[in-house]
Amino acid sequence: MTTRIDVRFAELKKQGRSAFITFLMAGDPDIDTSLAIIKALPKAGADIIEIGMPFTDPMADGPAIQASGLRALKAGMTLKKTLAMVRAFREADAATPIVLMGYYNPIYIYGVDRFLADAKSAGVDGLIVVDLPPEEDSELCLPAMKAGLNFIRLATPTTDDKRLPAVLANTSGFVYYVSITGITGSASAETGAVSEAVARIKRHTRLPVCVGFGIRTPEAARAVAETSDGAVVGTALVDALRGSLDAEGRATAKTVGAVADLVASLAQGVRGAKQAAE
């Protein structure tokens, strides 16, 4: 099975650079603006797009992404509409990989088999589900692999060498290294520690290793890109989006541009990185 994610990393390897991965919540601040933002991302420099599936109780997220999810839910976002949004994006873009990220309950309630079939046909390439560790692989990870979707696992500073093989066993697409113990939007990790951790994971897998949590500036994105196969930015983009809203939390004429501009400058940072040592 080859997904758009595999193809994209192969292309980037040929170009000799790391990936820039963006995260935004589906439906924030409203469904139309959210689609417009996502459509603008590839041109602004996003290599892979992560789309959050809003959930009322995001236990691993900080205040910015919690608020983003609540704005989306208030705007009427549902998992069904998130899939429709991916379908709409795919009409104009057949190449940019889409990864859905979120929590298990909405998927479980949608129905795992139906969700996987609908996600695949909508043009989703991979899933990141925060509250499904390898111990629960039979729930979604194994069925997702069968359905032809990548199941991208998070590795963390607490994932030691003994545990890494279990975490990597059914992971595909790429490995998402969470560089700190904490929630999204917290402090960033020290570059030395990150490159050490990436090297440690690479001793166990041939998959690309991307790094997220705490990356806010082009310089930070560049530093991470130099020591890994990709940099993931979420909270900084969500903050830029929120900063463009009016007092009632509604989109303004600036909203799409505010996110796209930040994506462009972060992408420049990633593209300016020296090629990661193999």
Binding site: D131, E135, R153, T181, G182
Partner: peptide, 20 residues
């Protein structure tokens, strides 16, 4: 041994917490 009562229970937590 996997923490289930029938289909209920389990360990649905983020990877950071799993080793703990």
């Amino acid at each position: 041994e996997t923490g289930h009562f029938g289909i209920f229970g389990g360990r649905f937590v983020a990877e950071t917490l799993m080793p703990l």
